[in-house]
Design a protein around this nucleic acid. Structure first.
Lengths: 218, 218
DNA sequence: GTAGTCAGTGAACAGTCGTACGCTGAAACC
DNA sequence: GGTTTCAGCGTACGACTGTTCACTGACTAC
């Protein structure tokens, strides 16, 4: 029997699979607690490997946390890319943006919950990793905004400020939606409505920023 | 010796003092971790009482957390009262508001760190308690805004939205200042500058809200 | 085919954890 | 005065924690 001697790369593939299992199991456990209280044994038990096996993949829970940040990045990238691809008039873009946030949060609640919770959590390296990523998105958004015709003539620092407000608004909306839970349709509607209103206010503010927003005119 | 038989109420006073010690010790320990990983023994050890003694004051760590929320309220009340008492033109009020936030956070970092961290932390009752309090502040602020002459003619829901933005902006600023640390004067200046800019944008937005902010005009 | 690599094991380590029990001694009460 | 109350103690319990070590056995490379 010329059975192929197991597909090549079986070794490394299996290792990756276990690593992935550790991460997604952690993500599940983290829905009800925070990273600083997550136990190493708790994770390995959920995956079905021995505690010692954990160290073949991570040198500790904080390390796993940082890895989770990087994985979570995927969800965030997909969301922001979808938002930035949005076209149409302002009101339509606001509606679609909020819609997109709500859908992504509903589809991948664990990722967003992790980000929102550990952004201010008790594990410094994870906090830093999340902050770095959000800053990165903010910078990307700044560049996109710089190309916007409505924002012609804006100072770079003002553009950064505006981008930061959008990013923070996204995070806060995600946090509120998660807190409401998946079945609270009425509360969810309330949150998305409030977010649309906020984005509208920010847009009105930017429309008149150059008229009276700069302190130099004082 | 007609020594007074100890001031009356010694018993209750001592109990209160121990309770207070438990709470402030917890607050200190929480600067480096989150509530869901805070150990009961860890707290009693810091205070110098036996683990069993803890139960004379709280029925568990989550209970202590909720009590901490109520205590923390004092700091928040002082801050918001100071902000609301501010007068003068818009730009001056913005500057003073941000100044006040920075000072309060610098003077009572532990309280604000606790609020910011546990607002999205892993302990549901504490999360709810903080959300309730922040909602309360938001409502109070809504009523104050309703009396503002510049906001005459605003819909109640729009006022609530604006108040919510201010509150969230406060929380986010506090979070950023805490993350920077007390000695990062340059970073602190950067943060306060950015916050002033944001508040300015919100103000410009509200100044033109009635002109074009309402979706009914579409 | 044979030697080497290495993901995962299983046992043991010294701690820590939350909780329960009955006790003590001082404050509070009548 | 005597009696009651009760904050805090000491001890003990079983369960759980992170980390280490030498090990096995399936995969890989030559």
């Amino acid at each position: 029997m010329s059975h192929s001697p197991d597909p090549p790369g079986t070794r490394q593939a299996q290792k990756l699979r276990t690593r992935q299992a550790l991460m997604s199991a952690s993500l599940e456990l983290l829905e009800q607690q925070s990273l600083s209280s997550l136990g190493l044994r708790e994770v390995t038990r959920a995956v079905g490997i021995s505690p010692a096996g954990f160290y073949r993949h991570f040198c500790g829970i904080p390390d796993l946390g940082v890895a989770l940040v990087e994985e979570t990045l995927g969800s965030l990238r997909a969301l922001t890319a979808a938002i930035l691809a949005e076209t149409g008039d302002t009101e339509r873009r606001i509606a679609r943006t909020v819609e997109l946030i709500a859908r992504h949060v509903a589809e991948q609640p664990a990722y967003f919950r992790f980000l929102v919770r550990e952004r201010t959590g008790g594990v410094a390296p994870v906090r830093r990793a999340i902050a770095t990523q959000l800053d990165l998105f903010s910078e990307e958004l700044t560049e996109v905004l710089a190309a916007e015709t409505e924002l012609r003539g804006w100072q770079p620092e003002d553009l950064r400020m505006l981008a930061g407000m959008y990013v923070d608004q996204m995070v806060m909306t995600a946090a509120a939606l998660l807190e409401a839970g998946p079945d609270a349709t009425e509360e969810t509607a309330r949150i998305t409505r409030a977010t649309r209103r906020r984005l509208r206010l920010i847009n009105v503010g930017s429309a008149h920023w150059l008229d009276e927003g700069q302190p130099s005119s004082a």
